[in-house]
Design a protein around this nucleic acid. Structure first.
Length: 496
RNA sequence: GGCGUCUUGGCCGAGUGGCUAGGCAGAGGUCUGCAAAACCUUGUACAGCGGUUCGAAUCCGCUAGACGCCUCCA
């Protein structure tokens, strides 16, 4: 099943600002690193969108037959709340506020993170390393950078010398900046810094006495700089050069820029072939971010417990909503948008669930060519993971299915198999949607039987033209959230 | 201030030199005892102005507006 040999995948590379044909370093294998969350509060939906984009990418790469090693880290070491030398680390701050151990903060929100991702049907990454588990590797990298002369020590802290680095390398190539501009436009710091230049960034910070999260190092008891962990862990698990590095758009500068600098300082080669950046999620037209308060927890979306929402949404409806836009576009989360997506998602599922009952004929009508439709689905995904186009293709298949149901088209057994298989692959394996199954909760058999009883009674009443009774059954069931659907083959129901 | 992105029909959201995106809503229809649901059919769109071109929503320029990064953030 090495589909990648027949499919030409193109990926938009942030480093070159172009779509490029994807060729992994080792044929058949892909190394992918994605910057994970800092676990100091509940994940907000923007994080989920980014990770969902990479989940979809992971899924498609796997479907193409690649052996993918997908590394997504957990940032659990404290990083500073601002870039000056003073400032508390985020995890310690949260720990102080809630009067718990920093590692309790980490544990609590790591669990929350995993719970949420499970609800949204994420595949687990191959490796999920933590920053605190790789302090030694980070110290080794600092030593290496110091040896190469691209860092300096001041008062127990070690800083990366961006200006020195820029003499022989190109700092800013990912984000399209040059150092001169950065110098020109950097805000005046108060001069309290140990840094030689404001553009320099910390590799190691000496801990203040009250700082709880600290580790010994050759320079001081302290903690690593926040760009370093990704370099340490990506190098350890994927090598000095690997295929894909992803993250949110907001990490492009300075985080990813600094990662490149660190890795190049160490190994004198560019660490990553393809840089991918997932775009931001807005909410009602405003930037969504933890720091501004304009953010929504995934949990609130699933429970409907938020002012902007008219109702609760299922994880798959939300996933569908996100997959309807391209991962590189800014997406605006609104109640109307979710409502529309939920309906579309249901339509998709109803058609898929009707497939087993579809009548198969000796041959297919010619106006819908299943084989070329299938390739169009691949073409959509091959074009930089264009899920909106893929979904449009899925709906053209849905239309075909409905035409068969109406007797306006026919399908051969072979085409039927291809259609069914392809729909399952893209809807469930690639997009990662979950099926709506009628009455899927365990223990709902009794509910199902009860409703069936009422359906039968209503059918009798209708046969006797006792419409007062039949309408009463229908309306009162609707009032408690059970909707009856009269179809040609009898009545079914759905719960809200 | 610097760098960058975006502006598509009522809403969301693809596309990017000539050929229907798609979804939701709306309208009409089929089905139904009536509804609902489901299905079918249907659309006025490419911010404004100017330019390049046989032809531009798509390329170039200007204007207006929105946004992102530059400071912790996915």
């Amino acid at each position: 099943m090495q589909l990648y040999k027949n499919q030409e995948l193109k990926i938009y590379n942030s480093l070159t600002s172009k779509k490029e044909v994807f060729n992994p370093i080792n044929e058949g294998h892909v190394g992918m690193y994605v910057c994970g969350p800092t676990v100091y509060s509940n994940v907000h939906l923007g994080n989920v969108r980014t990770f969902m984009s990479f989940d979809m990418i992971f899924r498609y790469l796997k479907h193409l037959g690649y052996k993918v090693r997908y590394v997504r880290n957990i940032t659990d070491a404290g990083h500073l709340t601002d870039d000056a030398d003073s400032g508390e680390d985020k995890i310690a701050k949260k720990a102080r506020l809630e009067q718990i151990e920093p590692m309790e903060v980490v544990q609590m929100y790591t669990i929350d993170f995993h719970n949420i991702l499970n609800k949204f049907n994420f595949l687990p990454p191959s490796i999920e390393p933590t920053a605190t588990g790789h302090i030694i590797e980070q110290i080794e990298i600092i030593k290496e950078i110091l040896d190469k002369g691209f860092a300096y020590e001041v008062n127990g802290s070690v800083y990366f010398d961006v200006h020195k680095f820029n003499e022989s390398h190109e700092y800013g190539k990912l984000s399209g900046r040059n150092l001169e501009d950065l110098v020109h436009n950097s805000r005046a710091l108060d001069g309290q810094s140990d840094k030689k230049n404001p553009q320099d960034f910390a590799l190691w910070k000496k801990a203040e006495p009250q700082h709880i999260m600290r580790w010994p190092s050759p320079w001081s008891d302290g903690f690593p700089g926040w760009h370093l962990e990704c370099t340490a862990m990506s190098t350890k698990y994927l090598g000095e050069q690997f295929d894909i590095h992803g993250g949110g758009m907001d990490l492009k500068f300075p985080h990813h820029e600094c990662e490149i600098a660190q890795a190049e300082a160490c190994n004198n080669q560019s660490p990553v072939n393809v840089w991918m950046h997932a775009n931001m999620l807005k909410m009602n037209g405003q930037k969504m971010a933890k720091s501004t308060g304009n953010s929504i927890n995934p949990g609130e979306l699933l429970s409907g417990d938020n002012d902007i929402l008219s109702k609760a949404y299922s994880p798959s409806a939300i996933r569908f909503f996100m997959m309807q836009s391209s991962y590189r576009s800014i997406l605006d989360l609104t109640d109307d948008g979710l409502l529309a997506a939920e309906k579309a998602y249901r339509k998709l599922m109803e058609a898929i669930n009707s497939l087993p009952n579809l009548k198969v004929s000796n041959n297919s009508t010619t106006d819908f060519d299943v084989a070329s439709w299938k390739q169009q689905c691949y073409d959509a995904m091959n074009d930089d993971f264009n899920t909106p186009i893929l979904i449009a293709e899925l709906f053209s298949a849905i239309k075909f299915i409905n035409q068969i149901k109406d007797g306006k088209a026919t399908i051969s057994q072979e085409d039927f198999n291809t259609l069914t298989n392809t729909l399952h692959v893209f809807v469930f394996d690639v997009l990662g949607l979950l099926n709506i199954t009628e009455n899927n909760d365990s223990g709902s058999d009794k509910l199902s039987d009860t409703v069936q009883l009422l359906i039968n009674m209503r059918a009798e009443a209708r046969a006797n033209k006792d419409f007062a009774l039949s309408d009463k059954i229908r309306d009162e069931l609707a009032a408690i959230g059970i909707q009856l659907k009269d179809g040609k083959d009898g009545t079914t129901f759905s719960t809200n």
